[in-house]
Structure formats: C-alpha cells, structure tokens
C-alpha cells in the first residue's frame, strides 16, 4: 500500500480546519500530519505519545574574511537583502537568507561556502497505532517552506490527512504539491464563500479531486452556499453543526466528537469522503 495524502484546506484561519482534520483522522483511522508549521495546533487535541524529533536545517553562507576582498558583488546579487557590506566585513542576516547560493556564484575569490542552520523540527509520534507528525518552525524564523518540504518528503504509507496552513499562500501551495486529494472546510457566510472561492481556484490549479465540508452549519442561512457549490458541480461532503458547547470543548483542547451530534456529523463525512477519494 502506498501513501494517499488528502490535504485539509481552508480559505482562511478559524474555519475549523484543525477540528475537521483531527476528528476525521481518528474516525478514518488515518495518520495526521500538521503542515501548518507556523501554528501547529493539532497536537493539542490528538495528544500523541513517544515523540521523536528530527531537526530541519537550511544552508546558509559562511564568509571567509581572509579571502573576501569586500567587493560587494554578493550584497548586490542577493535578492533578499541577506548580505550587508559594512566596508569592514560582510554580515549575513541568516533569517533573511533563502539558501539560493546566488552569492557564491558571483564571488570571484571563492570566499563563500555554506553551513547548515537549524530552522525547525519535525516531530513524529503516535496515538493508538496512528502516526502523528508535525513540522514546527522555530520562533522568529521566516521560511516555512523548507520545514514543510522536509515533513512531506516521506509520508507514512496508508491514508494521511495533511492539515494545511490557512489561506492560499505559498505554504499551502507547498503542501498541496504532495496531495492526491483535498477537503475544503468553509463556513456558511459571505466571508466563508469569498475565501472558499480562492481555495477552490487553488485546488483546481493542481487538478485534484476535492469536496467541501461546511462547518458552523446553519440551515436558515446556508442555502446560498449550497446553491453556489451546486452550480459549480462541487460535492458537499457534509455539514458540521454550530453549538456553543463545541466552542467550550475546543477551548479546553478536547475533541468535539465527544459530543454525539458532532460524532454523527463526522461519521457521515467520513463515509462520503470514501466516495470521492476511493481509497480501500
């Protein structure tokens, strides 16, 4: 059996993407991979055990001042303002560096070599036989993409749910590259629809099979959203109700499927997921 990666996306933060990903992972017996490396919250709910860590490193310039003639070519070449010529030495602003190595191409004196620098960590644990992984970007670090790339380089065999960064930024794009299908989480509001449209554009760019889950469902107000999805020929995989009780359970870091209405909703979603993605 190979890895089947399903990305859980939302147009913006706060739509309940992590709630969907964690609850579904338990019901579908899927591995959970938190790719929202700037704010990985899934572990709060899943509470995995036996966690092992691997550092994520990027390559960063190391300038040999004995060879450097302070010509300033490297500082002019760097597109990311990571190098600075003080006229006495060359400073490297490591956090700005994209590790592109353009500076070493232009350095005539071969003063620039590269050394590894830690920017984050990959954590791998388990919860009742399921694998839980997450990437965590170190605080103050800028570049999430190297962490996401490393996290998804080798995904476990079987079904994996990838909890994406919110929005349609390059972080979400990096995750989608590794997905074979997508679940879009939205809410029945004009906000929700607006952001959902952007997420739909994104998954269509990647030509992935996908379906939509409507969170905070409210029959009175949700009709416009159903009409839109129907018109676009997009399958609704299920509805999650909106209850104050759930906000309370969530705020305590517990799983909302402990509430029967939510368990039922997720069971239904799990079975309709099977139709869209045809796993076995």
């Amino acid at each position: 059996m190979r890895a089947l990666n399903i990305a859980i996306l939302s147009g913006k933060g706060g739509t309940g993407k992590t709630t969907v990903a964690t609850n579904l992972a338990e019901i579908l017996q899927a591995n959970y991979i938190d790719c929202d490396v700037e704010e990985p919250n899934g572990y709060i709910f899943l509470k995995p055990e036996n966690i092992m860590n691997v550092a994520v490193e990027v390559e960063c310039p190391d300038i040999n001042m004995e060879k450097c003639i302070l010509c300033g070519e490297c500082t002019k070449t760097c597109q990311f303002n990571a190098l600075f010529n003080t006229k006495k030495d060359i400073l490297v602003f490591e956090k700005m560096c994209h590790s592109c190595k353009a500076c070493s191409i232009v350095c005539k004196t071969k003063a620039i070599t590269f050394k590894p620098r830690k920017v984050g960590v990959i954590e791998k644990g388990e919860k009742q036989g399921l694998i839980c992984m997450r990437g965590v970007l170190d605080i103050g670090e800028a570049m999430a993409v190297p962490v996401i790339k490393k996290l998804l380089r080798h995904t476990p065999v079987g079904l994996n749910l990838l909890d994406c960064s919110p929005g349609t930024s390059c972080n979400a794009v990096s995750t989608l590259r590794h997905a074979q299908g997508a679940l879009l989480v939205t809410e029945p509001s004009a906000f929700g629809l607006h952001d959902l449209r952007m997420a739909i554009c994104l998954v269509r760019k990647f030509d992935l099979p996908f379906g939509v889950i409507i969170n905070k469902w409210d029959e009175k107000n949700g009709e416009f959203l159903e009409r839109y999805l129907d018109g676009e020929g997009i399958k609704i995989l299920g509805y999650i109700p909106y209850k104050r009780e759930a906000a309370e359970v969530y705020s305590r870091g517990e799983m909302v499927r402990t509430i029967p209405a939510y368990q039922q909703a997720f069971d239904r979603i799990a079975s309709s997921c099977g139709e869209v993605f045809q796993w076995n």
Binding site: T77, Q79, F80, H98, S99, C100, K101, A102, I105, V106, C170, V173
Partner: peptide, 27 residues
C-alpha cells in the same frame, strides 16, 4: 544545476516554485 528550488528545467520555469533568486540568470 544552479537552481536550488527545482524551479527550472532546460529553460522551462515552474512559476509556483520559483523564488526569484536570480541564480539561473547568473549562469
């Protein structure tokens, strides 16, 4: 060979991956 992001192949650019670093331009 110069691109660290696998964003270009024989002159064909993968725009979503390109970081605009200019390494390819230099070589």
């Amino acid at each position: 060979d110069a691109c660290q992001f696998s964003a270009i192949e024989n002159g064909l650019v993968d725009f979503l991956n390109c970081e605009g670093c200019g390494a390819c331009v230099l070589v």
